[in-house]
């Protein structure tokens, strides 16, 4: 089991990780979800040994890695950039970690060929990385990571620099490839909640260098522990709507709702899918994004910025007036300290 304990890391006087503690079971895929700058890459690099933590401990099966140089750690890693050896052909690129590990060259070449066949590059083994497309270069990097058979596999947003369609296809391929890697602890960093919810056995939400929540993807999505966690795991981001609780929850111009809460100030986290077109509230359209078969509409309603998600393509123009309804009862309630309250 890979464990990190109270891990903190500062680089160039900027705090990247603050007191991270987590454990990762062998044979599981953990998705680390967070926005850019949340500390995902720093965590991956600290585990790989490319960054040295200020304090804390990294251990695999009880063996302390914290001060171990990266080349002595049984880790494989695929990064956002398509990292390969430009002076070696594709086969030698993939065989590189095996040769370094002392595997005889013919055996390493045979294993590299097999790995390249698995990632669909059987016909390109003698080419240089510069002669491949971005997607193919990343497949080479994935093959190199898989061929090493390391007990820890770190995938740091491996598809972020690929186009949308290619990313979808690669994600499916990767899930198939990883299914055969039994016993490997896989960490997959992502900024996309949808990807994280699809892929992981476990999910870790990160924000500002801290773990804000971890657990089963579905349960974390259904019950985020805090407003920050809710904002990280929802795409489009959750709509934070402040309200005051007296006898009922008072949302001002947005109406009231019969929550049973102690009196005080709260924030309702309303998912974009819980705002619907057609309703009593007149909102102004400020921006429309059509993503595939969905429409994300940004609205201004009573001075509040809201995001609405519809499962259809609806042409709208900024400045349009639109009647909307808010399903306040479906929202999540967070206290003044940001923690979620049961309602």
């Amino acid at each position: 089991m890979l464990t990190i304990t109270d891990l903190s890391l500062t680089e160039a006087k900027v705090r990247h990780l603050s007191g991270l503690t987590a454990s990762f079971q062998p044979g599981t895929l953990t998705t680390i979800l967070g926005r850019t700058g949340a500390g995902k890459t720093s965590l991956m690099r600290a585990i790989a040994g490319l960054l040295t933590p200020d304090s804390g401990r990294i251990a695999l099966a009880g063996s302390d890695w914290t001060r171990l140089p990266p080349w002595k750690r049984p880790v494989a890693m695929v990064t956002q950039q398509f990292i390969n050896y430009p002076h070696l052909n594709v086969r030698d690129n993939v065989a590189f970690p095996l040769v370094r590990a002392g595997v005889a060259k013919p055996e390493a070449a045979a294993k590299a060929d097999a790995a390249l066949t698995r990632v669909g590059l059987a016909t390109m083994m003698d080419r240089r990385p510069s002669e491949l497309s971005g997607g193919q270069q990343q497949r080479v990097a994935i093959a190199r990571a898989l061929v090493k058979k390391a007990p820890v596999l770190l995938l740091d947003e491996p598809f972020v620099n690929l186009d949308y369609k290619l990313r979808e296809a690669f994600r499916e391929d990767l899930v198939e490839l990883l299914a055969t890697e039994t016993g490997t602890t896989v960490l997959y960093a992502s900024t996309e909640p949808r990807e994280a919810l699809q892929m992981g056995d476990q999910i870790i939400l990160m924000a500002e260098g801290r773990i804000v929540q971890s657990g089963q993807p579905r349960s974390v999505f259904a019950a985020p522990a805090s407003l920050t966690a809710a904002q990280v795991i929802n795409d489009p981001p959750i709509n934070p709507i402040p309200f005051r609780q007296a006898n009922v929850a008072d949302f001002g111009a947005l109406g009231q709702h019969p929550f049973r809460l102690p009196p005080g100030a709260y924030t309702l986290g309303l998912r974009a899918a819980d705002i619907h077109p057609g309703g009593p509230h007149q909102a102004e359209v400020t921006l429309t994004e059509v993503t595939g078969s969905e429409t994300i509409t940004h609205l201004r309603l009573s001075g509040q910025h809201l995001v609405m998600q519809e499962k259809s393509v609806v042409p709208r123009t900024p400045g349009d007036q639109l009647g909307v309804s808010l399903d306040l009862g479906a929202g999540l309630v967070f206290g003044a300290d940001g923690a979620r309250k049961e309602i």
Binding site: A48, L50, W71, P97, R100, R144, K148
Partner: peptide
């Protein structure tokens, strides 16, 4: 970076 990860 890759070489470090690959055990060199």
């Amino acid at each position: 970076l890759a070489a470090k990860i690959d055990g060199a």
